[in-house]
Design a binder for these strands. Structure first.
Lengths: 215, 215
DNA sequence: ATGCATTTAAAACATGCGTTTTAATTTATA
DNA sequence: TATAAATTAAAACGCATGTTTTAAATGCAT
């Protein structure tokens, strides 16, 4: 006997899948409620507004992911000496952990994160900083320790490049994996993209800053 | 005497600025026609549809950018031996050239490119491949020559990570530059972001592929 | 200057959105 | 079981969108 799923959960489950696939703005409440097989008005009844629903979807992931990431980072920091790549490897366990909570959890979460930034959802950024600002700060600090030669400004920019590459890889992930499979006859599992990503990110962050004169 | 600007051009100019700022979907025809000081219906009269307008906006840039990039790549390839960073430097001149055609050209173009991918405008991808597929192929080939150790699959993925980081840097560029200026008291010009980006990208592409075991 | 084609203007159309309202129904409590 | 609260259902609201239609204005040949 499958345990009864509440209307809230039905909505959250349908919403997160559609959000990760299409983005927040592109997904309508009617799509969500149809998929969830609940009444249209129940979204506003249970969550108040679409904006609050988006926040609830993200919160469900962040509440699992952030503490887990914090643990990993603190564990690494305790070793005293580490590389950039090891810092990024701290993301592996928290991500795969979410796969046990919810199938396709890692992919969903990263896609959601991607759209959250791509669509410049100011309220999401605010929410994240408010609830998990200390984890973000820890991440920045740890990365800086691994790269003391980088100025704070340099690190700021590179970290956002990292975010961009990550987000993009997830958002266009399904389409890309399809093309890759067709062109190279090699299927790449969703959670293996991270294996390709981490070396790239670490290489980018570790790059020398000296700029050869163009032209 | 400023030369008379046609309705088409007024629309294109207003549209590209708004698209680059807000994205394609978020920008309404009413916004565009108000900004351009033309009638609402003139967009559909001159361009047929919003989708065609988006394509026209992109085409105006691509027709300048792509041939210029092709020239740079061919010039580099003729030298016989080159680094990844030199390949990415090939983007500098074509980008800055567009600044002479239109003020803020480089930033606008990269932002547009960003939204084109972020919003998964299938028709734009098709258009680009149809008209400039050979330049894309040349870029891939040149990058592969600079990195013969990378398999085609590896290069495929890394090139998309590159695209993601680039796109993201541009799309969230204005907001990021603002934060950077506030946090570090250092204003960064829009076209200087590329100076920070290229080392990162080259470092990422050049990274070793061996993956240390996680955990 | 006249007549025709092109372009602009104003209004309406059809559709989809998030949200609200009202009533019916289910659930829980006393 | 009776009553109150919580939830679901159905419909409509107000608004914004891209597009189309119809008429007026303009440009440009003859």
């Amino acid at each position: 006997m499958a345990k009864r799923i509440s209307t809230q959960e039905k909505i959250l489950n349908a919403a997160e899948a559609l959000f990760a696939e299409q983005g927040f703005e592109q997904t309508s409440l009617r799509q969500i409620t149809t998929e969830a097989e609940v009444n249209l008005a129940s979204v506003n009844y249970h969550f108040g507004s679409k904006k609050s629903l988006i926040q609830a979807v993200m919160a469900r992931y962040l509440e699992v992911f952030m503490p887990s990431l914090q643990t990993e980072l603190e564990q690494l920091a305790a070793t005293g000496n580490f590389t950039t790549r090891e810092v990024f490897n701290c993301f592996r366990k928290p991500l795969s952990d979410m796969g046990q909570v919810r199938k396709h959890g890692p992919t969903l979460f990263l896609s959601l994160l991607g759209f959250a930034y791509a669509e410049i959802q100011g309220h999401l950024r605010r929410y994240t900083m408010e609830h998990f600002g200390d984890v973000i700060a820890l991440l920045l600090e740890t990365l800086h320790q691994a790269n003391p030669q980088l100025s704070p400004v340099d690190m700021f920019w590179r970290l956002h490049f990292v975010l961009g590459a990550t987000v993009f890889a997830q958002v266009s992930g399904p389409a890309l994996r399809e093309i890759a499979a067709a062109d190279f006859g090699e299927a790449v599992a969703a959670d293996q993209v991270i294996d390709r990503l981490i070396p790239f990110l670490a290489g980018g962050v570790d790059a020398t800053t000296d700029t050869p004169v163009a032209q």
